[in-house]
């Protein structure tokens, strides 16, 4: 490589597209495996629909006067899938590999590359089959919205601003989850191994899968405060889903303050994850001899 090329900034978009293409080529080499993985995650998701279908046979909504009826909640669930599938497709496999690279010393080779290390570590592989749940989520969204257009109180209306805001807040949700994951993965520099931390990830994000109203009672308030303001996983799905599903015809007083706070939380989360990541690189000692 000559000096001229080395001093140039790499084209991040092109690098990412190359990663995405390579991953797709690799996935297509094992096509049956790819299909099985897609079917597996789809069937898991469909089983969840089954569960809530049964729940809504017994109750009109989740929480009295919360507005989370069957199809509003299906929008919530679809949003969970959409956000989680993006995280699982783009960041999860890389995050797992990052811990492994720290343990084995493979990170040396990444540090040597003339490109931002966090970018390289975070986006090297794309797990395409995870995006099957993205499509399923989209399907469920369309189906639920179609049902909500006939909602007796405040029928659902499509406006460009709703669609735009939904996309923005889904992106915020992805950013918050990505940051949390990066922070957890970075800790393997200090801990050596972090299997339990991955369990921790699943248990924490588990809180984000339900409307936040259910926690706002009894000692759930503590959970609500912690998972809204300290580790903001409750914002991830709740805010975009609320914007799209409009439970209670969307007239709650805390809607906009919460939406503003979500933007703030997403930016702060990314900055913190960047800081933690760089601290972890400083603490990294190669494992090779």
């Amino acid at each position: 490589m000559d000096d001229k090329n080395a001093s140039q900034h790499p084209n991040y978009v092109q690098v990412f597209l190359t990663f995405a293409r390579n991953s797709l080529v690799r996935d297509m080499m094992f096509r049956t495996n790819f299909i099985i993985e897609a079917i597996s995650s789809l069937s898991w998701a469909l089983m969840n629909v089954g569960f809530y279908w049964i729940v809504f046979e017994h109750t009109p909504s989740i929480g009295a006067d919360t507005g989370w009826g069957k199809y509003e909640f299906f929008i919530f669930m679809a949003t969970t899938w959409i956000i989680n599938s993006i995280v699982q497709a783009f960041f999860m496999p890389n995050s797992e590999e990052f811990s492994e690279m720290i343990r084995t010393g493979g990170l040396d080779f990444v540090l040597l590359k003339p490109i931002d290390t966090q970018f390289l570590v975070s986006l090297r592989k794309v797990h395409w089959s995870s995006l099957s749940n993205f499509l399923l989520g989209m399907g469920l969204l369309v189906l639920s919205i179609n049902e909500l257009q006939d909602r007796p109180t405040a029928p659902w209306k499509l406006t460009p601003s709703i669609v735009g805001l939904y996309a923005v807040y889904c992106a915020c949700g992805v950013a918050i989850l990505y940051s949390l994951m990066t922070c957890l993965a970075s800790t393997s520099v200090w801990l050596g191994r972090n299997q339990t931390l991955y369990d921790f990830w699943f248990y924490i994000t588990n809180f984000s899968r339900y409307p936040m109203e259910i926690y706002r009672r009894g000692w759930g308030i503590v959970l609500w405060v912690v998972f809204t303001f300290i580790v903001p996983v409750l914002l991830v799905v709740n805010v975009p889903a609320r914007i799209l599903a409009q439970p209670l015809a969307d007239n709650t007083s805390w809607r906009w303050p919460l939406a503003m706070f979500t933007i703030f939380a997403a930016i702060i989360s990314v900055l913190i994850s960047r800081w933690v990541f760089q601290r972890s690189l400083l603490a990294y000692r190669s494992a090779s001899s």
């Binding site: 009109p60 989740i62 009295a64 919360t66 809180f207 339900y210 409307p211 109203e213």
Partner: peptide, 16 residues
């Protein structure tokens, strides 16, 4: 989370 979920479900069912 299951406790809070079912708490909310039972509440809504009772209200309805």
């Amino acid at each position: 989370t299951q406790i809070f979920l079912w708490w909310a479900i039972f509440d809504a069912a009772a209200a309805a």
